[in-house]
Design a binder for these strands. Structure first.
Lengths: 237, 237
DNA sequence: TTTTAAATGATAGTATTACTATCTCATAAA
DNA sequence: TTTATGAGATAGTAATACTATCATTTAAAA
């Protein structure tokens, strides 16, 4: 496994800056390396969160960051690539969190529980990344995430490894499932089911509550319970 | 339960024409009642299937059916409404099929098995509807279906009951789950999980196979097995 | 310190998309 | 015969999704 996360540890100020190494094919120019690039990330998150991906345009983005459309095209081929970039970033960040929280945990059932918690619970912006609001990004992934791969050009995008972070997280989860029960026959499909349902049940809970069993309380812990139940029943030895 | 399906039974010719009664708010003018309207349905299915929803425009649709953009706007407010219409149609049609196939079946476990088969297996165009190719429509629902509700205006669309067919199917499934095990605590969330995963695992199997456990064979029966396993483990008494 | 390259800003322009409006004409029901 | 209805034809607009060019600032290299 190659290094995906770069720790920029400043001992003196006791700040841990987390930098995620992104696939070069996701962008035209690396947005993390310039001021404008970082503004593009920060404000595309805000705008997509606010108005939805369909209403998001480079023109509007350019306006709020005081730049021009052409300026943004220097970083991203089109708005869909920004969406893929943001979701890829999110999945990489989540994989880091999962790895971090599962460190030194040996019991696979505890691993799975912590994992489900990390996947389904609301995210609090953790300040370890300056220009990414993880809380907003999480909500974007819930509401817009699947649009990143539900396209006619999935296969080409996949060849460019644009979905690798998602796949890596899926592999990680599948591995833990197999640790728990090496005989389980569908670890990957169950992993994607957990990931996707963590997001979708949250979306339904808020917007189409009658499609879930937790419309009244709108408590994300109920989603966690549902997923735990689903997973542990399935992989029971 | 109000009548959703209209059977237009022609005894003499032995043809059963199935007509699905659609919510009035889905369209500006009912496309089923005119030649142009039916062409809009037929060819929007073909075009969306062929080029994807993003590349689908009223202009292109108008060209292939020999009409004009303005002509299509007389039937649908915009292309997103066509997508909602098509998915609503599909879910109504599927609910009809499920009800039909589960008729006279009393054992809830057989019901659930038949249901999963109907949800996850490839659809064969059944010729009972002249201008709807159910096979193509099924593939559209797999690849584009969630875009119908993943918008900033879900709640308003929901108030107009545009997602009622989906919800009805969900209720139907949840009911069968409770028949099997009245003590099961998440029947609705499990129902949406079955529906969504039937589609998503199929999509992943074909386009991002490493996210599933059936990438090699690409056999949809493996999706059926996965779902059966998932469901019956969860609701076991 | 000067040269050079990189990053950005400013401006312009095009094809396409997503509509709205209006007017005519054919047809078929009242 | 009147009158709605459905549909074709045409026009026009604002916004979207780009591409191209050139000037300027800034920062790194010589």
């Amino acid at each position: 496994m190659k290094a995906i996360w770069v720790y920029d540890l400043e001992i003196r100020s006791m700040e841990l800056h987390l930098q995620i190494k992104m696939n070069e094919k996701l962008f035209v120019r690396n947005p993390e390396q310039t001021e404008l690039g970082r503004k593009i990330i920060e404000f595309s998150i805000r705008l997509i969160h606010e108005n939805g991906f369909e209403a998001f345009t480079f023109k509007k983005l350019a306006e709020v960051i005081g730049s021009t459309e052409a300026g943004i095209y220097r970083y991203f081929e089109n708005k869909h690539r920004i969406l893929i970039y943001l979701t890829a970033w999110y999945w990489s960040w989540l994989e880091f969190r999962v790895t971090f929280h599962l460190n030194n945990v040996s019991d696979p059932s505890i691993k799975l529980k912590k994992l489900i918690q990390l996947l389904a619970a609301n995210v609090v912006d953790d300040d370890s990344t300056l220009y990414v609001d993880e809380s907003l990004l999480h909500q974007i992934v819930i509401a817009e995430g699947s649009k990143a791969y539900l396209t006619k050009h999935v296969s080409e995008d996949n060849k460019d490894r644009l979905f690798k972070p998602y796949k890596d997280l899926c592999s990680l989860i599948a591995g833990i499932i197999l640790e728990y029960n090496p005989a389980y026959t569908h670890p990957r499909s169950l992993a994607t089911t957990i990931i996707e349902m963590a997001n979708l049940q949250m979306f339904f809970m808020h917007h189409l509550p009658s499609l879930t069993d937790f419309g009244q309380s709108k408590d994300e812990q109920l989603v966690v319970e549902f997923l735990e139940d689903l997973v542990f029943c399935s992989i029971r030895k």
